[in-house]
Nucleic acid binder design. Sequence first.
DNA 1: GACATCTATATAAAGAGTTATATAGTTCTT
DNA 2: AAGAACTATATAACTCTTTATATAGATGTC
Lengths: 225, 225
Amino acid sequence: MSLDYILLGLLREPASGYDLKAVFDERIHYFWPAELSQVYPAMQRLEDKGLLRSREAPAKRGPRRRVYQTTAAGHRVLRQWLDESPELGDERIGFLAKVYLMDELRDLSKTRQYFRELREICATRLEELQAIERGWAAQDPHYPDALSARMFHVSLTLRKGLSSLATHVKWCDESLRRIEARMGKERSNGRTIPRHTLDSHRGGHHRTDRVLDSRSRKQGRPAAR
Amino acid sequence: MSLDYILLGLLREPASGYDLKAVFDERIHYFWPAELSQVYPAMQRLEDKGLLRSREAPAKRGPRRRVYQTTAAGHRVLRQWLDESPELGDERIGFLAKVYLMDELRDLSKTRQYFRELREICATRLEELQAIERGWAAQDPHYPDALSARMFHVSLTLRKGLSSLATHVKWCDESLRRIEARMGKERSNGRTIPRHTLDSHRGGHHRTDRVLDSRSRKQGRPAAR
DNA sequence: GACATCTATATAAAGAGTTATATAGTTCTT
DNA sequence: AAGAACTATATAACTCTTTATATAGATGTC
């Protein structure tokens, strides 16, 4: 489970669960969100395994704190994980699932509206990340050169966020262009065409419409992965 | 839960659990993977709620099949979900978590090797999607124009996959350039510098190194989201 | 006929993640 | 002095997902 390794990595410098939550919400959540209710038991488990150690720390401003830190064994486990080959992993992208099925609404103006909102959300997050990068550049006259090893690797992930979100926005724009072009055609074909027959009007050769038809697939690949 | 809505969407055309698994592994898994052990109970639950109906179907080649289909109530629930505003949602991107922490290995050639492998994985998947698009283009002389509403929306999601993976590959290439430039500098600075002091050699002004330091954050935003 | 493979459904158990709730000291404001 | 807001830890209940296991008919092959 990646959360365990992320904790081992973050706790190379000592921190409490509460501290970590702030770090997750500030930086890590872009690629791995976590709740306090997940972090506290995970830290206990990792301490039981000898991968973390903890101590009571004097609190500056609040109640008692329990501060955790990665042990030598924890470092070894972390390094072993980091040394494994990359995997693309399972991504669950809810907004794509919706687009995939959105023909059900039979109303392109709703699809258009969806993409307009999505574009704004992505653009806002892109600005968030750009602000982080500007902050780094303001603090460090050499940025993005001459970084410490730590910051160099972190900056690699920031660049990923920046390029991904820029691509998101571009995809929304491209989609909006396609949607609007299609809406133009729909209008010129006449509004009065009953919607449930629209598809067949537009040439009946769409064998690929049968997205769900399992008989059309080339070969039964094994169900297991 | 999105899986339920995806099932309502896919079962607008009747299919068995086994059929659906093939559809998931062929297309849907790019944005929402699912196992049979999740699909079967989910379909039963949705039938209990009246959103799906099922019947025994004669099997052409195997044992008995139970074929499910979305009811009118199911269509309504699906449409209601589709009509909600988009959300970016929580993405868990394991390969980014690794890069974020990979300074722990203190060996840039390992980081480089990681990116080389990741690049190959992404390029392979990109080719997969390009092959799907070529297949569509071969079947339909007008592609990507004059699509049915169904295929139009599906093609919007395919374009997302294509642009995302192309960006992945470009990010890997950019990262490899940066890593190699850095390795060049490391060599010219002399191999004999003890690794644990390398950071301080390279200008001690990196306040942003303290990624974990919660005291440096601007304001305590509420822990809740 | 034995064995492997494919089609097909189903459930149990374990693991991962979210939401809700409880507790309590500290600090700041009114 | 009261109350709100913040710091801090913890657990329970629930939901979602994965992995493992069981069953069994149909088909193909050696």
